[in-house]
Amino acid sequence: MAEVKIVGFLCNWCCYAGADLAGVSRFQYPPNIRIIRVMCSGRVDPVIILDSFLYGADGVFVGGCHPGDCHYLRGNYYAEKKIEMARRLLREAGVDPKRLRLEWVSASEGERFAKIIKEFTDEIKALGPVTFEKEAMEAACLAAADYRLRILATKERELLEEGNKYGEVFTRHEMDRLLDDLVREEYEAKRILLKLKEPMSVKELASELNLKPNIVLRLILDLKRYELVDLHEIRDNTPTYIAREEHAQ
């Protein structure tokens, strides 16, 4: 059986130090994780996480300081929301969101770090090597780079706690629904964008992507409005569309 590969992003001040302490104290854990040091968990961009999966990580671990302990005060609060966003996108791409794990580990929790990594490695081993459609994960990466999802991931906490500018506070439930809808929409839009490397009609896209034609049409019109997609030609009375080159990579 192929060994699973795990990429870990650990913040310099707490989790990375906790991992060092695990070493100093010789707490053993499975060797599957490859650790990358970042200054703060808030640095970990969902795009980078999804890119790790795209390139073959079977699991991604993000480790930060406990709430209130972030060396930069609030980085880990933002990290939490970004990770949730990445998890939603993983789900869209057909990957079990359990493969992405966020934990708070302090510099003194060496033993706990080893335990968590063992647990997580076992979990990923049980899930086995990751499988997904390449285009699906690419669409997830593109969606993570999209400005709407990035605004929402950053502003979510504020909207939940302080409300919007009219002082209307979102409930957790409303926020979840909003996020689910928006994430799905962005993801589908990016899938369309990727498909449109070749010119296609709404009907063709709908059947390829297993979506309702009216949804495809609406997303295409959005993409057109943002100048990501152009009308290609009218073929037998049916318009076909194509992505602008720079956007579909």
Partner: peptide, 21 residues
């Protein structure tokens, strides 16, 4: 240098030196 602005920027316009994307 925490980098939180970089991973939040809606245009991915921020470069975080020494820990770039």
């Amino acid at each position: 240098g925490c980098g939180t602005c970089g991973s939040s920027c809606i245009r991915r316009a921020i470069k975080m030196y020494h820990f770039t994307d």
